Computed example of a mutant assay.
Amino acid sequence: MASGWAGDGAVQDQIDATIDDALERARRNLPQGESRHECAECGELIPEARRQALPGVQLCINCQAERDADAAHSSYNRRGSKDSQLR
């Protein structure tokens, strides 16, 4: 059922576009190239299994977890909230 001027699949289209944008951004941010043997931030050795699993890895697991936690708090919805679309 359509509401207002939006088409029947408008909400799902917006959800799909948001997911596609997030996937594209994540793929662009994947490391590439040769993996480091030591963490770029703390200098700890990076386990061989991690280096093989992630080409171009630069950080140990602990430093990567800290960076990921910091990044999770800085995300935002670039398409705007539902309330901003209704104004």
Rank of each mutant, 00 (worst) to 15 (best):
N77A: 13
A26D: 15
A72C: 00
E48R: 01
S75G: 12
S3E: 14
K82V: 08
A17W: 00
R67C: 04
I61L: 04
R36Q: 09
C60T: 07
N62V: 13
C39G: 02
G9H: 04
P47D: 07
E24Q: 01
E34H: 09
C39Y: 13
N62F: 00
A10D: 05
L30R: 15
I61E: 09
P47A: 06
G7L: 14
R50H: 06
L45M: 07
C42E: 06
R51N: 09
D83I: 15
S3A: 14
E44K: 05
D70F: 11
E41L: 04
Q32E: 12
R67D: 11
S84A: 13
N29Y: 02
Q52E: 15
A69S: 05
G43Y: 04
D21P: 01
A17K: 04
E66P: 02
N77S: 11
G9S: 06
A17M: 03
N29F: 00
Q52V: 14
A69G: 00
G4N: 14
G33A: 09
N29I: 01
V57G: 02
N29E: 14
D70E: 15
A26H: 14
A22K: 04
W5R: 13
A72K: 04
T18Q: 09
R28M: 10
E24K: 00
A49D: 13
Q85E: 10
R25F: 05
M1H: 09
D68A: 05
I61K: 01
D20F: 01
E34K: 14
A40H: 03
A40D: 11
D83C: 14
C39R: 02
H73R: 03
H73D: 06
A10H: 05
E44F: 02
N77G: 05
A65G: 04
Q32L: 02
A49P: 03
D20E: 07
I19N: 01
V57R: 09
P31Q: 09
N62I: 08
Q64M: 02
A69R: 07
P31E: 10
L30W: 12
A71G: 05
Y76E: 06
A69I: 02
L86C: 04
A17G: 06
G43P: 12
L30D: 09
Q14H: 07
A65K: 08
H37G: 15
Q85A: 14
R28Y: 06
G7A: 15
S35G: 15
E24A: 01
C42G: 08
P55C: 03
V57M: 04
N29G: 10
N77Y: 13
A49Q: 11
